[in-house]
């Protein structure tokens, strides 16, 4: 982040534009820094986001899909939604971009130390959860049991398919993938995330739950966690609001007295409970 002028992006190069999903709506972009000094200054943790600048189109906020334990590259997984995201999808490798960040607060990976973590995600929001999972796995000894529940409508809509296959082989990670509708060759589960969570979530003692996904998934999964005995202080969410500055100045992303950009986007359910229900 440019301390003197937090509106200025740093120049980046698009290394890879990879189609993730069978509907071709989500792609993962791998970016490299053009200047070594910018790369060193870009210190981040999973859960943070950045504003990605597509010259001629504008900038949009995306959570980092990469983990800081994968140096030299930033990854973003982007759903095609409007002007900037469509332009991004159409870029070819080698294109020039800008990135402004890191912005916002990360998942509380320090308090996670020595604890079990259950990571629950659905849809393209899995990107920052991928970052978190990679981070925890790269520092495996620091954490207890790790469970990942990841749901999509169909197998083709899962992100990071190759990596998921690798995770499935590991015995230090309990990966549970589930789809709403199965397909020929699908070996994971069939069912919605809340029901699967109910089945596989570890006991709440000494455990944090991190949840990120579409509103309906969250709506029906939170009661499952609460019923299982997870306290609101140990349920971690990552919010999305329309954003512009990312700095707590343009006024756009507030919930009550908090700005999601600079005070979030990661909040505990307990923190959200103290804010007006307006997101």
């Amino acid at each position: 982040m440019n301390r003197e002028n937090p509106y200025l992006p740093v120049p980046m190069r698009l290394e890879k534009n990879f189609v993730e999903t069978s509907d071709r709506n989500i792609r993962t972009f791998t970016l490299s820094f053009l200047n070594q000094a910018d790369e060193e200054a870009f210190r981040y943790l999973p859960g943070q986001f950045a504003e990605v600048f597509v010259p001629g189109k504008g900038e949009s906020p995306f959570g980092m899909a990469s983990s800081p334990t994968e140096p030299g590259r930033l990854k973003f997984s982007v759903n095609r939604a409007g002007v900037v995201t469509t332009a991004l999808h159409e870029l070819t490798e080698g294109a020039s971009l800008g990135v402004r960040g890191p912005l916002g607060h990360p998942y509380p990976v320090e308090p996670f130390k020595g604890k079990n973590v259950v990571i629950i995600g659905g849809g393209f929001a899995f990107s920052t959860l991928r970052a978190l999972t990679v981070y925890l796995l790269d520092r495996r000894a620091d954490y207890g049991n790790i469970t990942v529940v990841y749901g999509a409508r169909s197998p083709g809509l899962l992100l990071y398919k190759e990596e998921l296959a690798g995770w499935a082989q590991r015995d230090d990670l309990n990966l549970v993938t589930t789809v709403d509708r199965g397909e020929e060759g699908w070996t994971g589960r069939v069912g919605f995330v809340p029901a699967v969570t109910k089945e596989v979530a570890p006991p709440p003692d000494n455990t944090y739950a991190v949840i990120c996904g579409p509103p309906v998934m969250i709506k029906f999964t939170l009661p499952v966690l609460r019923e299982a005995g997870y306290p609101d202080e140990r349920i971690i969410m990552n919010l999305e609001m329309r954003m512009k500055c990312g700095l707590g100045m343009c006024g756009r992303c507030n919930i009550g007295e908090k700005y999601v950009c600079k005070d979030g986007p990661v909040f505990t359910l307990a923190e959200l409970g103290r804010l007006p229900n307006e997101f």
Binding site: P55, G56, G58, E59, K244, C245, M249, G251, R252
Partner: peptide
């Protein structure tokens, strides 16, 4: 103090 941020220009040159 609310503001919007927009880009004017092309892929080659422009302003925020």
């Amino acid at each position: 103090h609310c503001f919007d941020v927009c880009d004017e220009g092309t892929a080659v040159a422009g302003s925020r």
